[in-house]
Design a protein around this nucleic acid. Structure first.
Length: 428
RNA sequence: AAUAUAAUAAGCCG
């Protein structure tokens, strides 16, 4: 490892990134997956050897980047801290990459820590950094904090750009604060910036999600008026809004409209349409959409199939549902836990607990880990039949498997017990 | 060499 470190220094100094990256990949994949906080890791070796070689700070970037590329986010963060402890820092760009990776891994706490470390180390964050941190807070619904970061960046002389605002807008939309979200669009203009497709799409989405489809449409129209071309995301968003509001006709009109405009519906678009049409019990039409998308050269994904399967389940046509499950296998599209849970759910609803359990077994055989949704589905199925005994068997099983029951699970059990007249038991 | 923003699926009761 000592030798490797020296080689790495030489390689990165010589700008031989490919070679360095290859070596790094081998090293980090040989490392134990959970770094002990006290043990010596590659970073330490690199830091030690950097005195012997000409110091090349790039090597640390390469290391952290390699960790990130290999999905090893925590070791990447660990390396970051070890560097910091010895007064070293990766480049700003690398810090941003790390932040993004941490955000993706949902380690918001770490995002904040790294961000604060950067400030401590007097690395001036750039607009990427701030936007990522804003995104992190938004993801947690902490919009106050997100907005504080916005002020912070302005105070530090870093100008927010459209992306920064879009990120915030998305955050406010997610918590349903459309007033604030729309206000931020105005703020974009006041700053002399120009709202873009992302801005509008985010707003359309936000309005649709709180069932304000008419206003969503108005924003959509405004977008056209200012000369911005909606894209397939914008269209799909609005289509979903109409679908969720039960306005099927309007949704399909939009699909035609986008085609006329030369915007190709994609898999998302079709999945949205299929789901909407299935909701009103038109599985056959959903199936036609499935054929249509195949004809366009679009590859249906597991969500497409899951939606059509659910459509048939709703109609009580389990034969067709299972046929589609077969078709998935033939087309090499792996069913997900959701796919199975849909089938299980409808079998439960039909009172066919036996087959529900068969499907459950099949799922487990396929190495799909049942989650709390699947368990709760089965539990409530048993409860509906007044079979609290099997319901609790499943409850025990899920606990044994370290699957955390949630409020839905307990609700189902309580309802089941009450229905069975076991009010005393329900109280525990 | 590597960095930030928007769209689609499942479970309880109603």
């Amino acid at each position: 490892i000592h030798l490797c470190s020296i080689i790495l220094h030489i390689l990165s100094r010589a700008n031989m990134f490919k070679a360095a990256n290859g070596l790094l990949n081998r090293i980090i994949n040989a490392e134990p997956s959970s770094p002990s906080p006290t043990g010596v890791t590659v970073v330490d070796c690199l830091m030690d050897t950097s005195k012997e070689c000409e110091p090349s700070p790039m090597v640390f970037d390469l290391l952290i980047d390699a960790y990130v590329q290999n999905g090893k986010v925590m070791p990447a963060a660990d390396a970051f801290y070890r560097l910091k402890k010895r007064g070293l820092m990766p480049s700003l760009l690398c810090c941003n990459t790390l932040l993004k990776a941490l955000l993706r891994a949902n380690r918001i706490d770490m995002v904040v820590r790294v961000y604060e470390s950067m400030l401590e180390a007097k690395i001036m964050p750039d607009v990427y950094t701030f936007s990522t941190v804003i995104h992190a807070f938004s993801k947690q619904g902490k919009l106050e904090e997100a907005k504080r970061v916005l002020s912070e960046m302005e105070a530090r002389g870093c100008n927010p750009n459209v992306v920064t605002y879009n990120t915030l807008i998305h955050g406010y939309c997610k918590v349903g604060d459309l007033t604030e979200a729309i206000g931020l669009k105005e703020a974009i203009c006041e700053k002399g910036l120009v709202p873009d497709v992302f801005t509008y799409s985010a707003l359309v989405n936000g309005l649709c999600k709180v069932r304000r489809v008419t206003e969503a449409r108005e924003i959509f129209v405004e977008m056209l008026e200012v000369g911005l071309m909606p894209n397939e995301v914008t269209y799909t968003t609005l289509i979903d809004g109409y679908m969720k509001g039960g306005e099927i006709e309007e949704a399909f009109k939009l699909k035609d409209e986008m085609v006329v405009r030369g915007i190709q519906p994609n898999v998302f678009t079709f999945n949205t349409l299929i789901r909407g049409i299935c909701k009103v019990g038109k599985a056959q039409e959903a199936n036609m959409l499935l054929t249509e998308m195949k004809g366009m050269g679009l590859r249906p994904d597991r969500m497409t199939y899951t939606n059509v399967i659910e459509g048939y389940c709703k109609e009580g046509n389990m034969v067709e549902a299972f046929r589609l499950l077969d078709e998935m296998a033939k087309r090499n599209i792996a069913p997900s836990v959701v796919t199975y849970s849909v089938i299980i759910n409808w079998l439960c609803k039909a009172g066919d607990m036996e087959r529900a359990h068969e499907v459950f077994k099949k799922m487990v055989e396929r190495d799909l880990m049942p989650n709390s949704v699947v368990y709760t589905t089965l539990i409530s199925g048993h409860c509906r039949k007044g079979n609290t005994e099997d319901a609790f068997k499943l409850f025990d099983e899920m606990v044994r498997r370290k699957i955390v029951p949630d409020a839905f699970t307990y609700d189902s059990l309580i309802h089941g017990l009450c229905k069975a007249g076991k009010i005393q038991d329900a109280k525990k």
